[in-house]
Design a protein around this nucleic acid. Structure first.
Lengths: 195, 195, 195, 195
DNA sequence: CCTTAAGCGAGACGGTACGTCCAGTCTTTTA
DNA sequence: TAAAAGACTGGACGTACCGTCTCGCTTAAGG
């Protein structure tokens, strides 16, 4: 095992170039068709430098995504749960239809054979989003806008799963304008019965 | 290009051994960690024979799945749409939790970087299932049990997407006993408003 | 450990091209400056093929030499020991001043840090030459032309060592016309004392 | 090109540690198996410091040898040429059988592919020894103990070459007790013919 | 005393080659 | 004539050093 490198001496420029090249190449050629060597060449960086800071292509790609998305994608709270969900999910759909989305798709592909990557995706992406969404839904439940007998986690999955399904298995990408209907159908089943 | 081989002279035994080894190895080691060479060795078959009959690991794995699942998984029609959906989806969940599921997961992973495989999965697996489900839902719509203003395709996705989401991104596999609730929440939003 | 390859199926053409490229490149660039990758590229052969048949650059280079020199370099026997030695050693000097000599030098260099190569050189080159020379000298001893109290092995080294010394440590290569004097000085000390 | 470093400010301690580590590591692992990085680590010195003062591993190793051997190894002059040669060469053999010898062997190996090192070895080691030996032999010639028609340079090579030959190509190291015979055979051919 | 300029350790960097592995093609032999 | 066996080219893998570089730290000299 090599001694852990010292992050303080890390070259910011190499880091930047590597992360950028990662996203650019994966967006162009597809996750599995991109090699670490190609990333190194495109970034003008040596392979050793990449391996010094990232243990695998998966970790590198995930890092690249997280860095781009930041801690963004917070849920608004206007009181109108349908509108708020729609606003936030529209942003998500925008991301998924961008280069980031292509990288994300590839990463989920990788995760099917590399459990470590699956765990890392959950930890740094999925869980954060899920919890934020659950929080917003919980407020709606408290406000009497949603049923109390459905766990918010189940609600989240009902809303989010179709996005992933379309991205991973569909031909046509999910368009932002499809969101209101989709959300509507879900909420219809999640509202308290008036009787 | 070599002349297309004559399927009539094909060795049934080699085919069997190859398909079986494919599923066994992928179930054990994960899709991406299995090489064609390993499959050939495990099946006691030569690499050339595999390449003669399948253009890629993806096509081979897909073939192996289809052969196991057959044209099964038809939807029953007892008149009770919730019960019928639950019965069929229980079978699907059973498959996804078996070796077949592992191969299917890996295949969807592959599809993220190999569009041909994505198309092949849709053609031979997804579309058939979707259409069968749509047909059963259409009957329920006609019987006045479901709303007429929601496309059956959208209904199908609401039901099926969470299964895939859990399989591809979850830690805990979806258990059969979770199905009734899941289906219930969906149908609650899909039933005609009584007023 | 990979299964031993089957020599009968070996590609004669790849073997030829590899051995030729080895000698050519080493003669041009010097032993240590030649990489296996460069040999592979120059020979139009893949690295894997080289590693399949030779365990290291040293073994490859030694093979290349042996193949060129063959079992040649036998000692003549005209009855005149001085003339016979001179004739044979002239041939040796010719070889050492050719491409083969450059490879041989490099190989001896390698042997200084890689005992396996040293042993292989001795086994396939040095010992054969030494024994042939000893045999010729033994005849001269039996014929009363050389002292009986000096081991033939010591005689061989007295004759052969200066060639190596000049090759490995000298600036000016040893010229064929220097041989008669060199041999003469040695034999002067090795003839029976007439008194 | 960086400005030449100022030797007056050089750290004597770093120099010592580097030279010692060089000999120790090469004696243990063999010349070619020792990296500059390993020397730096073993000496507790940074790579840059080594590169600041020595242009290559070869120059470093040669420096290490010279520093150990000093200007020693002068030829005695008791009047008995055989005894004097034997005395001095015994010392040489002692050195060659020590750690220094291992380094020297490796260095000669390096010289086969790096002409600069060959020249440096000749300049700082071989030539000095040769000249000293020639000087002693010249005295013997003048004293009528050796032939006048053989260049002293040729005499030196006859004596010295077998030592190198054994060191570079032999299995068994040359033992000190072998020296008298070896020298005897040579001198037998180099003495004036009494008739 | 205080600054400055060098040598120094540490170690990150762009490269190059390593020896291994597998993809996908091809040839030879067996049934 | 399909299939088994397996050698072949090609190319990426992840590792190890190369020789260069930039960083702070120490240390001695000169103002």
């Amino acid at each position: 095992m090599p001694p852990a490198p010292n992050p303080e001496r890390r070259s910011a420029q190499s880091r930047r170039a590597t992360l950028d090249a990662t996203i650019e190449l994966i967006a162009r050629d597809g996750y599995a068709n991109v090699t670490i060597e190609a990333i190194a060449a495109a970034a003008g960086v040596s392979k050793a430098t990449i391996y010094r800071w990232w243990p695998s292509k998966g970790h590198l790609a995930l890092d690249a995504i997280n860095e781009r998305v930041g801690q963004a994608l917070d849920f608004p709270d206007t009181g109108d749960i349908a509108a708020d969900l729609c606003a936030q999910m529209t942003e998500v759909v925008g991301l998924l239809n961008s280069d980031i989305g292509t990288v994300y798709r590839g990463l989920i592909g990788e995760a099917q054979s590399t459990p470590v990557i699956g765990a890392a995706i959950r930890e740094s992406v999925v869980d954060a989003q899920t919890e934020a969404c659950q929080a917003r839904l919980a407020k709606a439940v408290a406000a009497g806008q949603l049923r109390t007998d459905v766990p918010t986690r189940a609600m989240v999955e009902m809303l989010i799963a179709p996005l992933h399904y379309r991205m991973l298995l569909g031909t046509d990408v999910l368009r932002p304008q499809d969101l209101p209907d989709l959300i509507g159908y879900c909420l219809d089943g999640l509202r308290p019965t008036s009787g």
